[in-house]
Design a protein around this nucleic acid. Structure first.
Length: 449
RNA sequence: GGUCCCAUCGUCCAGAGGCCAAGGACACAGCCCUUUCAAGGCUGCGACGCGGGUUCGAAUCCCGCUGGGACCGCCA
């Protein structure tokens, strides 16, 4: 399966909406196959639906792909030897071949449209790389609720080609070796094969991909909530994680490795290992994968992922970066190790490193018995070094020498005063990182010093 | 209604006749660690839809049933 020469695959979205999960999944598998074989990944815009297609969506889809890390070798923006890559710019090509079909008596005109005649008794079976042999006879191409044979419209009355026709012309002319697309296209394939034959062309390899379903096992749609790739970005999922997660829907390398990079996936990917069963989009797994990537990230890169969410929350990130340095922020996130599954969660859980304001609004010290705490904090601040290990040591010995004192009765108030949260990394580490002055400031504010 | 596809733990995958009294991951439960929550470690729960074949032997092959899904548009 790896001996294919000159692999050329394409992702051919119609610009009628943002890049959604299903489209991203298809694009991803095409990219994987191209990169695995050192082939070409082509982006082709199928904008033949005049009323729904827009340039804005075309742009959005491209940025969605860029975000996912799917780079293409030929496309409307960068050109290539097989252009144009926008179907609306290939109209004369479709026209010419349609006329040829009419001249040969294989198609006829009806109104302004051109329609391909479907003959009965044609064996239009094909072998799919993932689904195997699929047997179909042309007699099965019927009109809905009728037993009439259904001819195929190839040029619409508005002069635009139909999907089933344009896809054949383009895939052939663009020298596509493998047509990799969603399983919902399996039943379109026989029609396209009829067209390939009428035109006298060889058919490419076909590989259909399993669908992605919602939790209710219905085709993923708006009803299931987020469908656009961008919505995931905004929720705090990172591109590497989305890539990793999507790659695992309908494919596995066969080993137990589930967390991997784009390059590792490209290296291991095999079309023959793609699953046939539709897969349910599982947020739990996505969360897990995102968390794993979050943990593994280089500190500076991690910071760049978290920063936008801090800024969105109105925190003075740039100010802190200037006064305390980027390393302070990056290290703060390293301290968060494993806390937070999305970038947004991690940002929310660590806001107190950026500003004291959110802490003030989250907590007050009214119900505390401050006298004992003040004694304890005074002991802490007497430390000759503001280091976590040292602070903890002092805390333990202070607690050991005070009858009935428990660590949590002192550590928790400290945690609340410093973070405003009942949950945080080890509180002495937090204290060390915040620094003596900042800690004093916070404790004083709460009347604990 | 017609054509086609699919069917292993709740979910994602492994399994391509004996290595499977079915393995991993997520989720869930419990324990350990512990100043909290995570992370980490350990344990547990949990599936081959049903019925027939073929075979010495079937999750794996065949048939039927059932259950899902896709398509049948001058949308893609």
């Amino acid at each position: 399966m790896t001996d294919f020469k000159n692999v050329r695959v394409r992702f051919a979205p119609s610009p009628t909406g943002a890049l959604h999960i299903g489209g991203g999944h298809t694009a991803l598998f095409n990219w994987l196959w191209a990169r695995h074989n050192n082939g070409k990944f082509i982006l082709r815009i199928e904008d033949t639906d005049l009323v729904r297609s827009t340039k804005e969506y075309e742009q959005t889809i491209m940025s969605g792909m860029v975000w996912l890390g799917l780079d293409w070798d030929e496309g409307p923006d960068i050109g290539g030897n097989y252009g144009p890559y926008r179907q609306s710019e290939r109209l004369d090509i479709y026209r010419d071949y349609a006329n040829r079909l009419v001249d040969e008596g294989k198609a006829y005109r009806d109104g302004e449209a051109i329609i391909f005649r479907v003959e009965s008794g044609q064996d239009i079976s094909f072998r799919d790389i993932v689904y195997g042999q699929i047997d179909v006879m042309s007699d099965g191409l019927r009109e809905k609720d009728s037993d009439k044979l259904k001819d195929i419209v190839i040029i619409k009355s508005d002069g635009m080609p139909t999907y089933n026709y344009a896809v054949v012309i383009d895939d052939h002319l663009m020298n596509i070796s493998h047509v990799i697309r969603g399983e919902d296209h399996i039943s379109n394939t026989p029609k396209q094969i009829l067209l390939y034959r009428a035109l006298g062309w060889d058919v490419p390899e076909f590989a259909h991909l399993p669908m992605i379903l919602g939790r209710d096992k219905k085709k993923l749609s708006k009803r299931h909530g987020a469908t656009s790739i961008y919505e995931y970005r905004d929720m705090g999922y990172m591109p590497d994680s989305m890539f990793n997660f999507l790659a695992l829907l309908g494919w596995s390398a066969g080993d137990d490795k589930e967390i991997f990079s784009r390059n590792e996936a490209a290296e291991l990917f095999e079309l023959s290992r793609v699953t046939r069963k539709a897969a349910v989009f599982d947020f739990d797994k996505l969360n897990y994968i995102n968390q794993e990537h979050l943990k593994a990230l280089d500190p500076m890169v991690r910071l760049s992922m978290i920063k936008p969410f801090w800024i969105e929350a109105g925190l003075p990130v740039d100010e802190i970066e200037k006064s305390r340095g980027v390393k302070y922020l990056a290290d703060a996130l390293t301290l968060m190790a494993g806390r937070g599954r999305t970038a947004k969660e991690m940002a929310d859980f660590s806001d107190y490193f950026v500003s004291f304001e959110p802490v003030k609004s989250r907590w007050n010290s009214d119900s505390l018995d401050k006298d004992k705490l003040k004694e304890f904090f005074a002991a802490l601040f007497a430390s000759d070094e503001w280091k976590a290990t040292q602070l903890e040591e002092i805390a333990r010995s202070w607690i050991g020498s005070h009858d009935g004192a428990k660590m949590k009765d002192y550590a928790m108030p400290l945690r609340f005063a410093l973070t405003g949260m009942k949950v945080s990394p080890g509180i002495f580490e937090v204290a060390e990182h915040l620094g003596l002055d900042e800690c004093r400031k916070r404790l004083q504010y709460f009347g604990l010093m």
